[in-house]
Design a protein around this nucleic acid. Structure first.
Lengths: 190, 190
DNA sequence: TTCATCCTGTGACGATCGTCACAAAAATCA
DNA sequence: TGATTTTTGTGACGATCGTCACAGGATGAA
């Protein structure tokens, strides 16, 4: 739980009383590789704070897997749209390795937030971080070519490149696996 | 101001006391076409609630304009990243028509939020909507081809198509203006 | 109305991409 | 270790895209 507390402190002032109030909303859990945290069609009722390992969100379109996000240690994975609106999720979240998370239950989180404005603020900050990340990756596609997108990930998110395979990354960058291969080749032969 | 109040009621329970507390944070203002609401390099200290007209966010990369978002009536335009973190904005927001907005000042909003948890909740909901919108458009690029992206906009955001020119939309969809022209042509000759 | 500006369509051409296919390399597991 | 699976590289080929160029149409201001 210590990782979560540090994460919270990095986002907002938080006293021991708020931390105590938050406890009922928290459950630690592990997922095996390829195990689903959230399944398409379900309503997302949790935030998943990642202690160890990583997971990804993906759509299945015409039987094909399309990765839309990767989430690593000290980040929160969730379907912000489903979590906020209560509507069914259109995508899945799956563990890519053995994964340890702290599950934050929505209903109990809201109950705690009513008793401590610090918790409400925390919730707002979490969503803000999430929105910022979405914005960053959304703009990748509008501003850059596939090659520039790869270079952006290499310079700005090197840790991700080291843990995610080329095939997985290709889907996330919206190009074919072979394209990333060829971009590498083109660059090395300059 | 009535439009804003309706918008707020659609997001959260809000009593007259909270509404009164919020007033000092609000200023109505108009912008002429091509006038900037937010300039690259500035820190974004406002939420812009759009009463009438529309605006867009855009980057300037190598002297070229790249549109990243369009914002219409009863939506909030802002740079969520800059607004939240206090860092300089990397993009501009500009009025595309004569624009009437209610400017919500960040500092005064936070002061009001400390006195009424309803306002804190409102802020969280606004950010949530913003994140949801970002997520939607971010996934457009990972899931669909240019033709499918255009079709998505036509079916899910027809109002936007009616108000934004093809050239402007092309930039937003991450393709050349001519490509959208040809997609239209290809479809009509089936 | 007239002029200037903006927007859209279209042809040509080279570059890049997606797909299919297969081989090599790396990782995983028994 | 050896076998199996996963991942990556690469060639071929057709489709699509970006760029450049120019023409016509729409829009708006004088």
């Amino acid at each position: 739980m210590n990782e979560l507390l540090q994460y919270i402190h990095s986002l907002t002032a938080f006293d021991t009383e708020s931390w105590a109030l938050l406890q009922p909303a928290l459950t630690q859990q592990t997922f095996n590789k390829n195990e689903l945290l959230l399944k398409e069609g379900q309503v997302c009722r949790s935030l998943f704070f990642i202690v160890k390992g990583y997971c990804k969100s993906y759509y299945e379109v015409d039987g094909l897997v399309k990765n839309t996000g990767f989430f690593f240690e000290n980040e929160i994975a969730t379907n912000i749209s489903s979590f906020g609106s209560g509507q069914k999720s259109e995508f899945n979240i799956v563990a890519c390795e053995l994964l340890t998370v702290i599950i934050i239950d929505k209903e109990k989180l809201f109950q705690a937030a009513q008793q401590a404005p610090e918790i409400e603020t925390l919730g707002r900050q979490c969503i803000r971080l999430f929105a910022t990340k979405q914005e960053e990756f959304s703009n990748l596609f509008k501003l850059y070519t596939p090659q520039e997108r790869l270079e952006y990930m290499e310079t700005r998110h090197p840790a991700m490149l080291q843990r995610v395979s080329l095939s997985q990354l290709a889907s996330f960058l919206g190009v074919a696996r072979e394209t990333l291969s060829r971009i590498r080749k083109r660059r090395s032969h300059v």
